[in-house]
Structure formats: C-alpha cells, structure tokens
Amino acid sequence: MGDLTPTKALELHQKMWEIRLFELSASRLYKEGALPGFIHLSIGQEACAVGACLALESNDYITSTHRGHGHCLAKGASPNMMMAELAGKVTGYSKGRGGSMHIADVAVGVLGANGIVGQSAPLACGAAYTAQVKKTKQLALAFFGEGATGAGPVHEAMNIAAIWKLPVIFFCESNRYAELSPYDVHVSVPNVSVRASNYGFRGLTVDGSNVAEIYEAVSTAAADARGGNGPVFIEAKTHRWHGHYEGDPMTYLRPADRDTENRVDPIEQFEKLMAERLKIGDEAISAAKQTAAEIIDAAVEYALNSEDPSPGVMYEDVLA
C-alpha cells in the first residue's frame, strides 16, 4: 500500500462508496422512470476514478466520457447538482441541457464528461497545453475506455502529447467490453498500454480493482508530467458490472463474466486492506460508508425536489 496514510485511505474509501451509492441510486431511479434518456454506470470501476482523481491536485483538470459519474464525483463535483442533471432539472450542472453525459464542474477541474468516444484525450491535451504555455504546473488527465483506443483522436492526442511533452495522463479504464462487444473485438494486444511505447512514452497496466495501486501509479505519473517529462499512459484492468447502458440485457456476456459470486469488489477488497494493513477499525470504515450514504440520499432528495427548466433555458448559452 505504499505510503498511504489512514486518513488518505479513509478518503479513498468514502469516495468509492459515494460513487457506488450514487450509481445504485441512479440505477434504481432509472428503473422507476425518474431519470430520462440513457445512463451508463461504472459500478465495479470505482477504484479507477477514485485512485486517479485523488492523486491529482484540486486545480488539475480531467476530461471524461459517457461513463463519467465516478470521475466527476471523485474530482469533487457536487452529487446534488449531478443527480439533478441526471434528472433533467434546472438545478443540475447544465440546467438540464446536458444530462448524464455532459456533466462538468470547471471550478474543480472537471472539463466535462463527453458523449463522443475518444474526444476526452485531445481535449485534455488542450488543457495540458494551456498549463504548459502559462507554466502553471497543472496537469490534465483523460479518462477513456479500451474501446476508445481504436479511435483516431486518441492516437493523434498521444502523438502530439509525446512530441510536445505535454503534462497529460492518458488513463484507460479497460473494463472488458466496449458497448456490446468484448475487448478483443477492439484491441489487438493483451495490454493496450503498450501503445504508449510506440509514441515514445511510458505505459503501464495496473490492477483496476486496487485503488491503492492506482493512486500510486497516478501519483508517480503526475510527478513525471509536472516535471516536464511528458505523458504517461495507464491502463487499469477493471470490470463493468452493469450493462453498457441501464436496461442492457447483456446477452453478449462471456461465461467468465457471468459469475457474479467470485468477482472482485474493489471496495470490499480495499476495506480488508484497510483493516489488515492500516489497522483501521470497523467503526471508522462503517462511519465513512454511512457518511457517503447520507450525502447520496441528500442528492436524490435534492434532485427529486428540484424544478424542471423553464423553456427559456433552451435558448441560453448557444453563443457566449
């Protein structure tokens, strides 16, 4: 567990619970018809968002994807405003104009989830370029899936980032599926992190269920990037428990992925580690979980009690 302090461990742990409970609530509300459109959940992948974002400074930037709730929460976005946005309410981050796939909180460095696969990478390079020109020591981390690594913009971004030595981290959540088809339909190599070496920078594959390992890998990459050494590519092998979208019947699942009994739960696994290695007591662990539950229950309340946007909202912010 490297030099993870008990305080930091409890922070990581609580954030993972906030994400888990936020998404379980979203899943339930979606089934009940309280959330319109479609939503993509990252249940099972919480360690990735948390390990990555908590290793960053608060003024660092992230760009995210269609599966971005965890990323936004981990970087510090408000669960209230996020849930309100999922519900299409005027109190949401986008006043109900964006929905689940377009949540941003620029003040905490979230430059936005994004509905176009692959775009998170070059957008993050832009934020990294700003940091480079203005010499701010900030960095940008792009989340994307293994499916996105087949998309041109990700490769263009990796090449530019390498040539320009941009302070950017490419963080790939390799979650076994892209939409309805498995990893090997999308990627030609067992570990997609090897792509980095062709562009001349470091790539590594980590256990995406191990929040401590991810936290450490991103901390090191961040120090590299800030030191002017250019990008790092981190592939986290993780597991998407729910469908591509809520309501996905997942008829395509491979047998190994149907076994819900024996799969690794990143939160449970971390709780064991907290108890055994960091000697954190049961009470502290359940208290963190309890706090997370209160935060998310309040977010659900907030969203459901919020107003729908008035028609005028439709015409705002088309141009600056």
Binding site: P122, L123, C125, G126, A127, Y129, Q132, V133, I160
Partner: peptide, 25 residues
C-alpha cells in the same frame, strides 16, 4: 510556445485547441 507546428492531425489539434480555449487560451 505561442506559435506551434502540429503534426498532421486535424481532429487532434482542433480538439486540443478547444481544450486550451476552455482553460484560458
């Protein structure tokens, strides 16, 4: 820093410019 040759990656550097614009350039 301010006048920069790009590789031949129109989608990549246009998107990069947008990310830069969102963050103050």
């Amino acid at each position: 820093d301010r006048v920069r040759d790009t590789p031949i990656a129109e989608a990549g550097f246009t998107s990069l410019a947008i990310g830069a614009a969102m963050t103050g350039l």
